[in-house]
Amino acid sequence: MTTNPSSTEQINRDLFRPNRQLNKWVELVVKTIFALFALVSVATTIGIVLTLIFETFAFFSEIPIWRFLTDTQWTPRFFNPQYGIFVLISATLLTSTIAISVALPVGLLSAICLSEYAPAKIRRWLKPALEILAGVPTVVFGYFALLLVTPFLQKIIPGLQGFNALSAGLVLGVSIIPLVASLSEDAIYAVPRSLREGAYALGATKRETIVGVVLPSALSGIVASFVLAISRAVGETMIVAIAAGQNPTLGLNPFVPVMTMTAYIVQASLGDTPAGSLAYRTLFAVGMTLFLITLALNIFSFWFVRRFREKYE
């Protein structure tokens, strides 16, 4: 018995038509679910920003912004309160600078070693081992700095106090090394092999190829990892709250206790500050300042990456 081809095609279309309609409905449902998840994240971010804005405006309705920027002490819960935010900013910049001076060179050199020098088998073991460091809780790093690093540094540096910015910054730098190393290594490893081979063909050594070809080609990704690591250092809480102390001191002396912005937020959030009071609103003023600093860092990263890509396109 023979079958008409046209009738066979019609039968196939009849069989798969319901499935096609079902697939369209399934695809629509999946798109809707994904869109809802995206909206939840966006709405959460908007809610956080609006909360910071409203509470910060309430704070500045009672305290002039010039006092916030010009006072030389930070004592919002004292009898004669002062609101000098630069006391907290200086401590944050001090610990972050120490951390960055450790994390950026060590992380970048680790990334170069993993991508350019380590054999493939060793790389498959070293990179996960390095990334395990990122999974250590920051409170562990904080007590490590307080109980081990600080006593060791006190034997070398006379006059180093028990709580200080130096040990907190050093351990903070160690904690963000995996972030710099992993992201930078991914950017370096993504550079096409043909660029390396072209440099070798022109007589360049391995070092000259890395410095002159590989690193410039991966610069956008490396800078993005640097900015992300700096943002992490600025926003770190537990390490500086445990090891750096909670003494708001204006200056850049790494040997004395300091109070960063995040450490103050931890201190003021312990429950001793009445909700709705002026001291309570300082939490949001400090949080808004921290948010603006990290936002500026991310805007710089976006601008740099886009300009770099436009330059080499």
Rank of each mutant, 00 (worst) to 15 (best):
M1S: 11
T3M: 11
P5C: 08
S6E: 13
S7P: 00
I11P: 00
D14W: 13
R17L: 14
R17K: 15
N23W: 10
I33F: 14
F37D: 09
V42M: 03
V42D: 01
I48T: 02
V49H: 06
F57M: 14
F57E: 08
A58Y: 00
R67L: 00
F68H: 11
T75V: 11
P76A: 09
G84Y: 02
S90R: 10
S96C: 08
A103Q: 03
V106M: 15
G107F: 06
G107Y: 07
C113Q: 13
L114M: 13
S115T: 06
Y117P: 01
A120S: 14
A120E: 12
R124S: 10
W125T: 06
K127D: 14
P128T: 08
A129S: 14
G135D: 09
G142E: 06
F144C: 02
T150C: 12
F152H: 12
G162H: 06
S175I: 05
L179R: 08
A190E: 10
P192M: 11
E197Q: 12
A199Q: 03
Y200L: 13
A201F: 05
T209P: 02
G212E: 07
V213H: 08
V214W: 02
P216D: 05
I222H: 02
A233N: 05
V234M: 07
G235D: 04
E236F: 05
A243D: 00
A243R: 00
T249K: 05
F255L: 15
P257D: 09
M259Y: 01
Y264N: 11
Q267Y: 09
D272F: 11
G276I: 03
F284Y: 10
T289L: 11
T289I: 01
T294R: 12
T294V: 14
L295N: 05
A296H: 11
L297R: 09
N298K: 07
S301I: 05
F302L: 15
F302M: 15
V305I: 13
F308M: 15
